[in-house]
């Protein structure tokens, strides 16, 4: 256990925000879901008791019948904003006094940093480079992430859970989002920051970053396992494999999506265009875990090799 190495990684100034992220993201997930579960308990009560549902104010926040629904922004909101600004200023000041921004040697194109890392918020993309070629990891997938995020409101036809925390009423949406945000984005950032060392090799926390380390890993392409040698054969085989992946992944997504009675109602509300777009985005998202699995378990590099691009 190389504690010094661990300390060097954690205390690198630009890594400190990610140390914060490791605590902040789980905290706020807990904080949000806790309110969601509290709301869900009240929803269950209201559903069981129609009389109560008629008269109840339908929030878990404290309530008395005489209270006004709205407060004046001045002073009730503005004092909160002022307090928030003060707290953030203090945090930022203390952080800036105690920790210096990094400044390395002057830029030198002939002296390559090893590892050469992107800024931490893009490390998710850099980590994807292990599993995909740059045109996928650096261009197509980021574009789809942005387009997919922007499309969320137009694909989620579930009218419940608008303006309050809940888990029960939006299980599928929340689990999908958390899987994407935490499992595929934040986790990749953390791996890229703390785990990846020289040569972008995997170093467990506490393992010494050995610059002379070599890993003799023979990655294969899928068609080599099957024994196809011709370029045409490889291309067609790869296209079929990718097609098969999308068919299977689409089927799994469909089964999951229509698993419950409630979800089938939501599905019935969707247009064909909405559903196909959702399918396309979700199956593409699942390409990443699929590719990670293929690489780690079967040491497969590409499933589709063509003269122009490889996947």
């Amino acid at each position: 256990m190389d504690w010094h190495q661990l300390w060097v990684i954690i205390s690198t100034p630009d890594n400190v925000p990610i140390v914060g992220l490791v605590f902040l993201v789980p905290f706020y997930i807990w904080y949000g879901l806790r309110q969601g579960f509290a709301n869900d308990r009240l929803i269950a009560q209201l559903e069981a008791d129609p009389e109560m549902a008629k008269t109840h104010h339908r929030k878990t926040q404290p309530y008395k019948s005489g209270w006004a629904k709205e407060l004046h922004v001045w002073p009730f909101l503005l004092r909160m904003e002022f307090l928030a600004a003060l707290v953030v200023t203090v945090i930022l000041m203390v952080w800036s006094i105690t920790l210096n921004a990094p400044l390395e040697e002057p830029a030198n194109p002939s002296l390559t940093m090893n590892p050469a890392k992107a800024p931490w918020y893009f490390l998710g993309l850099q980590e994807m480079l292990v599993y995909f070629d740059p045109w996928m990891a650096g261009v197509i997938l980021p574009t789809l992430i942005v387009v997919g995020l922007m499309a969320i409101p137009y694909l989620d036809t579930n009218p419940l859970g608008c303006g309050y925390y809940t888990f029960k009423q939006r299980k599928y949406a929340i689990l999908t989002f958390l899987f994407g945000f935490v499992g595929l984005w934040v986790a990749m950032v953390i791996i890229g920051t703390f785990i990846r060392g020289p040569g972008w090799m995997w170093f467990w926390p506490g393992q010494t970053w050995d610059h002379n380390r070599l890993i003799f890993e023979t990655n294969r392409d899928l068609h080599e396992l099957v024994g196809i040698t011709g370029a045409w054969g490889q291309g067609i085989f790869g296209a079929l494999t990718v097609g098969l992946y999308f068919a299977v992944a689409g089927w799994v997504v469909h089964k999951l999506f229509t698993l419950t009675e409630f979800n089938r109602k939501i599905y019935a509300r969707m247009t064909l265009l909405q559903y196909l777009t959702l399918q396309m985005l979700l199956t593409t998202m699942m390409l990443l875990p699929a590719k990670i699995l293929l690489r780690l378990v079967f040491r497969i590099k590409y499933v589709w090799v063509t003269p122009w691009f490889n996947i």
Partner: peptide, 10 residues
């Protein structure tokens, strides 16, 4: 994340 968890995009 907060906006998503509260369904505020609806």
């Amino acid at each position: 994340m907060r906006v998503f968890l509260t369904g505020s995009y609806k």
